[in-house]
Design a protein around this nucleic acid. Structure first.
Lengths: 191, 191
DNA sequence: GACGATACGGAATATCGATTCCGCTTGTCA
DNA sequence: TGACAAGCGGAATCGATATTCCGTATCGTC
């Protein structure tokens, strides 16, 4: 399963350009943005996009995967941070912030915690796993209650992420809302 | 601004049928469900739908408004409940549960807390106001932290609602996730 | 610099769903 | 019961997009 053919120089360049533009366009206009819009932004014809990605969904998926990959790496690099609690809450916040900016991200994130869709799921699972590591360490350090498992955390993360994406909260509201939620994650079951 | 004309008997019947079907269809298939689907479900032609609602959005809005109205009433009726905390958390849970079943509900709920869209907003504001009353009473009873205002609560509610709608969590996960969030709302800002 | 093989651009096609239109049906009222 | 307005059904229209196709332009190699 090696590389079938080395891409021609300009083809490689265009492929990258398309990927970048797609990320930018979808981030700004959501997943409903049209292929033409992406093509225009990339300065190529729609045909070119289709030469590289068989379908709109494939293109979209490619972007999501790379974003997951990036976040998973980030999680891994935080795996040995001094303050485990800060690392966990920090990345949690970061993902929500990112969703507030880059639309069409949360939607797929929800599923990462639940669905089973192959392609996206592979890297999705990787992300969940990496984030799960951060959670475990934070719990070990006593920064997060022990009776919270990664599934619940992903559920809550998904929720806050979706909300941040859909509504246009200002950073302040985002911070306060997250503050309350974080207290819940710290809580030693008060009641 | 009285009623322009009393509707003919069958027209009234059809209008109601359309409204019911629309609620059912959108609840099951999300807001992307087609008008034909609604028409088929109601046993009428698409033309009939348009006789009663000028546009798909208008139809959709009608449903949302009635749902808001219902919830607002429910909130009001709980305004004098013995256990203010239970009333607040109960309705919160109920809304999330409802979203899990009826799609295309959360989406609009997010906006109720933020947007300013007239029609929907009128009743949306009513709901927020009523729910705010419940929050205030719960705080008065010491069941919810005092430094949480309705805006933040709506933000969190919107998030959990959206998540419940998109992902297909089982009731158990929903309950556990909400449990954590609720602890955050009770929390007396731990650290 | 010439020849394939690769890629490209973008017009043409295929689909799908909202909305409009109009001849036909049914309720209402005298 | 007959006339007429109010309603109805659903085919036709319009618009928006994804996706396909093919003549043309470019790259890599000799």
């Amino acid at each position: 399963m090696a590389d079938p053919k080395p891409l021609r120089a300009d083809a490689r360049r265009n492929r990258a350009r398309v990927l970048d533009s797609a990320e930018a366009v979808f981030a700004a206009a959501g997943p409903a943005a049209s292929m033409e819009e992406v093509a225009r932004h990339a300065g190529v014809g729609v045909g070119t996009i289709y030469r590289h990605f068989p379908t709109k969904e494939a293109l979209f998926e490619a972007i999501v995967v790379s974003r997951y990959e990036r976040l998973a790496e980030e999680a891994d690099s935080l795996a040995s941070a001094a303050d485990a609690g800060a690392a966990f809450f920090g990345l949690f916040t970061r993902m929500v912030e990112e969703a507030a900016t880059k639309k069409a991200f949360a939607d797929t994130l929800v599923r990462a915690g639940v669905d089973v869709k192959a392609a996206t799921s592979a890297s999705g699972r990787k992300l969940v796993h990496a984030f799960g590591g951060l959670l475990a360490r934070a719990q070990g350090a006593g920064a997060v209650r022990d009776d919270a498992d990664i599934t619940e955390v992903m559920a809550i993360l998904a929720g806050m992420t979706l909300a941040a994406e859909h509504a246009s909260w200002d950073r302040d509201l985002r911070t306060r809302a997250l503050g309350i939620v974080f207290d819940g994650l710290r809580s030693t079951r008060p009641r």
